[in-house]
Each structure stands twice: as structure tokens, then as C-alpha cells.
């Protein structure tokens, strides 16, 4: 665990370039499904946004040719994918590994910001509310995606674990309890 630039892996272009060719709509639909499931299981995510619950958040992984535009909602959260940087109320940008590390409790947001690995633009208050809400929710994206995979879960879990081990990117919750509901072990 750390918050320092040299330790944040950057996705190789060889892996990210194919994303330029993939259709945005199906990927956005899948991400929307994951986001709705997360919010259903962690309603405090919306509660902690407070007055910023209607804000549009651009999540911009700077090493991917895509930007996510998040419309939070208690039941109808929506995610759009854009090739460029869409108009938003708040934008959080950084390497995908840094953004995933924030979600999974592997990195500290302030430390990433102080080191310039993370960039905030637009409504700072909304961006901080989202960051704090996500940190409190103790999310596990790898675990959530594996659950959605249904019968393929036993196959997917070791793959996610292996990818995490090889790339050094936090694909699951850093402090998940072994054998826990959201953990992979």
C-alpha cells in the first residue's frame, strides 16, 4: 500500500488500444449494471454524496482511450462511455491503477493528489464527496463482477486474482477479509 507515483502501474498500450475499437454501448450497459448493483448493496454511497447526488462525475482513466460519465441515482444510476472528455460537474483523472486503488482502499486520495498522480477539476466539493463516499463503502469491484458472472464465477475469480498479481493493479478490495463475502480468497 502506498500513495506514491513510481509504484502505480500504467496499463500497457498494447492492452488498452483494442478499447478504441470496441463498441461503447454494450460496455456502458455492463458498467451500469455493476454500478446499480453496487449502489443497491451500499446505499450509503448516495447518502454520502448529500447535495451532490445529482452531479455528473467524469471518471477519466488517463491511460485508457475512454472516459466514464457517472450519473448517480439510488435506483437508476447510469454510466456513459465517451471517447473524449465529456462535459461534467466534476472530473477525477488519473491512471486506471490509481483510480482502482482508490476504490479498493489501496491508495490514499490526498496522497495521490499531493503527488499529482490524481487530478481534480470542476466542482471540488462534489469530487471530494464522491471520493469519501467510495472510500467508506469498502467496495470490491472484482468480487462484484465475479458474482455477476454467475456460473462462471469459479473460473473468473482465479483469473482476477492472477491479473492482480501479475499487473500489481488493485482489482479487489485491499483489506477484504479472507473468505469474506466480498473477498476473493
Amino acid at each position: 500500500m502506498s500513495g506514491h507515483a513510481p509504484e502505480i502501474p500504467v496499463f500497457p498500450r498494447l492492452l488498452t488500444q483494442p478499447l478504441r475499437l470496441l463498441p461503447l454501448q454494450p460496455m456502458a450497459a455492463a458498467l451500469t449494471l455493476v454500478a446499480r448493483r453496487l449502489i443497491q448493496r451500499h446505499p450509503s454511497l448516495i447518502a454520502r454524496l448529500g447535495g451532490h447526488a445529482a452531479a455528473r462525475f467524469a471518471i477519466d482513466p488517463t491511460d485508457l482511450p475512454l472516459t466514464l460519465l457517472l450519473y448517480p441515482h439510488p435506483t437508476h444510476t447510469r454510466i456513459e462511455l465517451h471517447r473524449g472528455v465529456p462535459e461534467s460537474d466534476a472530473r477525477i483523472a488519473g491512471p486506471l491503477a490509481a483510480l482502482l486503488g482508490l476504490v479498493h482502499g489501496a491508495y490514499d486520495g490526498d496522497a495521490l493528489f499531493f503527488s499529482r498522480d490524481l487530478v481534480i477539476a470542476g466542482d471540488t466539493s462534489a469530487a471530494l464527496a464522491l471520493r469519501n463516499a467510495i472510500d467508506d463503502a469498502e467496495l470490491d469491484l472484482g468480487g462484484e463482477i465475479a458474482v455477476l458472472a454467475g456460473p462462471f464465477r469459479p473460473v473468473l475469480l482465479p483469473l482476477i486474482e492472477a491479473a492482480q498479481r501479475i499487473t500489481g493493479v488493485a482489482l479487489t478490495r485491499a483489506d477484504a477479509l479472507p473468505g469474506g463475502e466480498e473477498g476473493l480468497a
Binding site: M1, G3, L102, G105, A106, Y107, D108, G109, D110, A111, R131, N132, D135, D136, E138, A174, D175
Partner: peptide, 10 residues
Amino acid sequence: RQRSRAYVKE
């Protein structure tokens, strides 16, 4: 108190 749980833990 404004820092993340990762910071607090470390």
C-alpha cells in the same frame, strides 16, 4: 479525518 482508510491504517 479527511484522509482515506488506507492512510489511517498505515
